[in-house]
Design a protein around this nucleic acid. Sequence first.
DNA 1: AATATCTATGCTCAAATGAGCATTCGGAGT
DNA 2: ACTCCGAATGCTCATTTGAGCATAGATATT
Lengths: 310, 310
Amino acid sequence: MTGPEERLRMAYVARRYYRDDATRSEIADEIGVSRFKIARMLERAKDQGIIKFEISAGDLVDPSLSVDLQKRFGLRRALVVGAPGDTDDIAREYVGKAAAQLLTEIVEEGDVVGFTSGRTVYAVAGFLESLARCDVVALGGVAGQATEHGVEILRRAQRIAGGRMWPIFAPLVVRDPATARALLHDPLIHEATSQFQRVTKGVVAVGSWDPPNSQLYDAARELGFADKLLAQGVVGEVAATLIADGGKTIDTIDDRTIAIRAETLRKIPEVICVGGGASKARAMRAAIAAGLIDSVVTDASLARELLTMN
Amino acid sequence: MTGPEERLRMAYVARRYYRDDATRSEIADEIGVSRFKIARMLERAKDQGIIKFEISAGDLVDPSLSVDLQKRFGLRRALVVGAPGDTDDIAREYVGKAAAQLLTEIVEEGDVVGFTSGRTVYAVAGFLESLARCDVVALGGVAGQATEHGVEILRRAQRIAGGRMWPIFAPLVVRDPATARALLHDPLIHEATSQFQRVTKGVVAVGSWDPPNSQLYDAARELGFADKLLAQGVVGEVAATLIADGGKTIDTIDDRTIAIRAETLRKIPEVICVGGGASKARAMRAAIAAGLIDSVVTDASLARELLTMN
DNA sequence: AATATCTATGCTCAAATGAGCATTCGGAGT
DNA sequence: ACTCCGAATGCTCATTTGAGCATAGATATT
C-alpha cells in the first residue's frame, strides 16, 4: 500500500496535470523526476481512486442512461433526465424542460415543427424560451378534457418561434367515420392536415394502453372502442396511431381520428417522443419498434424499465 | 448556452476520454467529427463543469492545504489531515495515523528514529503497523503524569521496527542543574543521549506556551519556572527546547532538562513535527522559524491558522 | 551464497496532441 | 445589397505522450 506522502504527491501531480493543464514534463521538472514516472503516477492515481472524473452533463441529463438507451434501441438521440424515484409530475417537468432545451438546440430556421397534444407536450411548450424562426403545426386533434391545452401548445410555440401556425380545433377521436370525414373537410382543419407532409421535426407524446395511461384511451373508452382495441393487442399510441407490442400498427379506428397517419409520421425526418414514468415503457418500446419515433426524451424510471425489459 | 444534446455529447466524449482512456482520434471517428472538435469539446466540458476532477489523496490528507503549507514555510514535507471542525482528540487520531503511515513509508533500514514523548507522539506509535528494521531512541525524558507513555512509545516502535531501543527513564525537566547532571551521568541515560547524534529521523511533538498547551509547560509551572520563561517570550517548545516567537531559542532551563539540545536536533536529517489544533499554531511557527523541524504532520485547523497568521 | 523473479526506472520511436493560422460560414450593421 | 465581424472548423508542424523494451536494483527461493 502507498503511504500518505506518495499519495499526496500523486494528488499534487494529478492536480497539476488535470486541473492546471501542466504537461507531464513540466511537472516532472518541477518535482525532479522523469516524465515516465509522472505518467505512471497518474495511472496509479486513477487506479487508486486518488483522482476521479465526475461527469454530469448538467442538472438534468443522466449521461450514461442516455447513451445506453440511445445505443440499445438505435435511436437518433436519447435524453434521460431526473432520478428514478421522482413522481410522475416532477418527471414531467424534467422531461418537458429537457425537451424544450433540446428543441431550442436543434430547431433551425425554416423547420416546420409538429406537436401532438398531451400533458407532457404541454410541459415542453411551457419551457420553450427561444426557438429559431419556424412554422408550427398540430399533428392531431385534442384529447382529454383540457381541450385548451392542445391549442395552447401551438400558441406558445408560435409566439416563440415567430412563424406561422396551424392548430387543429377538433377532437383527436370521434364517434364515427362520417364525423371524421366532415371535420377533415373543414377548411381550417384541412389546411392544417395538409401541412403534415412539410413537417421536419415532430414532438409527440406516447400513451400507454396497458396499463392505461393515455387520454386517447380515455376518449376511446367513452366512445366504447377501448375493449375491442385492447383485445387486438393495442399497448399504446403515438398521435392517434395505435400500436401493438411488437410494433405493428393497428388501423381499426384510423377512420375516426383527426391526426397524422403512421406513414406520414414515419416520413418526418425526426420525431421526438417525450414522456416519462415506467408505466409507459411497453408503449414506448412498441412505438420505437413501429418506427414511428426517432428520438426520445424520457425519465430515469422509464429508461431503466426499457433497458431491463428483456 | 449549450443545449442538452450537446452537453450530453460532451459528457460522452469526456467519459470516453478520461474514464475509458480512448484517444481523441478514436472518439472522433466514433462519432464522426474531427479530432480538433473533440479537443475543443473537452476544453469546453472542463470550462462548463461538465467534467470535474475530484482529487482526494485518501481519507486523511487534504492535498491543497498540505501543498500550501509545504510551500509557504519551505518545509520538506507537510501532511494536513482531517477537517477544521474536528475536536482535538479526533484531530490527534488523524494526525497520529497519518504520521504513522508516513513513517512506514519513509523509514529505511538502518535509520535511527528518535521520538519525544507527548500524547500525539503516543498516538503515532499506536498507529504504527510496520517499519523497516531500525533503531529507536527517546529524544528526551518524560513529561506529564502519564509517565508510562513516554516509554510505551519506544517499546511499541521497537517491537515493530525490530532494532535496538534506547528509552530514557527520567523526567523531561527537573528542579535544578545538579539533579539534571546526576541523571545525565546515569549509565542508561547517558547511553541513550549518546545516540542523539546518530538519529536520522526525529518525530517530535510541539508544545504551546501561549496559550499553554504543553506538558513541559505544566511541569515548569509546578517547578516555578513558567512565569519567568513566559516573560522571556517563550511561545512553545520542541523536545525541551524553548522557542520565542521569531524562532529564537531560549536556553534558560537547558541545564535542568534531560533532552536533545537544539543544535543536535538541527543536525538530524529530518525532524517531523506532529501536532494539531489551532492553539499550537504560534508554537509551530516558531519551531519552523527556529529551524528545529523540517516536516510537519498536522490538522486542518492548525494549517489554516498558520496560513492566515500573516 | 547463488539464482531466479519481480518491480521500478528510463530509454527509443511511433502515435497523439496542442498552438497557431487560414478558411468558411452565418449573422449584424450600414 | 454589401462589408465586417466573430465563431467554428480543420489544417500543418512542433511538442507531448504512450508502448514496448532493456537495465538495474530489490526480494524471494533454493
